[in-house]
C-alpha cells in the first residue's frame, strides 16, 4: 500500500499534527515503507489463529466499586494553561 500526500494530510489532520509542505512528501514515502514492511505479515497463514485483543494471555481484573480518590483539583489546575471558576479554559469549541 502506497500513501499519497493527501492520505498523509488526512492522517495528520485526524491526529491534529502540523505537517509542513516539505514534510508531506517525506512522510508519504517513509510511512509507505513502514506499511510495506507490515504487509509482509499478510503472507502468514492465520486462518487457525483467533484474533488477539492483547499481546498478553491474561484476563481483565475487575475493581471493587468504591470511591478512593479525593479532589486534587488545585494540583491539577496549577499546571493547566488557563483555569477559571474551577473550570479548565480551552479555545472556544463551537461558534
Amino acid at each position: 500500500m502506497v500513501l499519497q500526500r493527501s492520505d498523509v494530510e488526512k492522517i495528520a489532520h485526524l491526529a491534529r499534527l502540523a505537517v509542513s509542505e516539505e514534510e508531506l512528501a517525506a512522510y508519504a514515502s517513509s510511512l509507505s515503507d513502514i506499511l510495506k514492511f507490515v504487509e509482509r505479515m499478510d503472507s502468514a497463514d492465520v486462518s487457525r489463529v483467533a484474533p488477539m485483543a492483547h499481546p498478553l494471555d491474561a484476563v481483565q481484573r475487575l475493581r471493587e466499586d468504591a470511591v478512593r480518590e479525593s479532589s486534587q483539583r488545585e494540583k491539577f489546575q496549577a499546571i493547566a494553561p488557563r483555569v477559571e471558576a474551577g473550570l479548565y479554559l480551552v479555545p472556544k469549541v463551537i461558534e
Binding site: L87, L89, V90, K92
Partner: peptide, 11 residues
C-alpha cells in the same frame, strides 16, 4: 460555552 473571555470552560 458561556463566554469565558472567548474560551469554553471544561468540567
Amino acid at each position: 460555552h458561556e463566554d469565558f473571555h472567548g474560551c469554553s470552560g471544561i468540567d
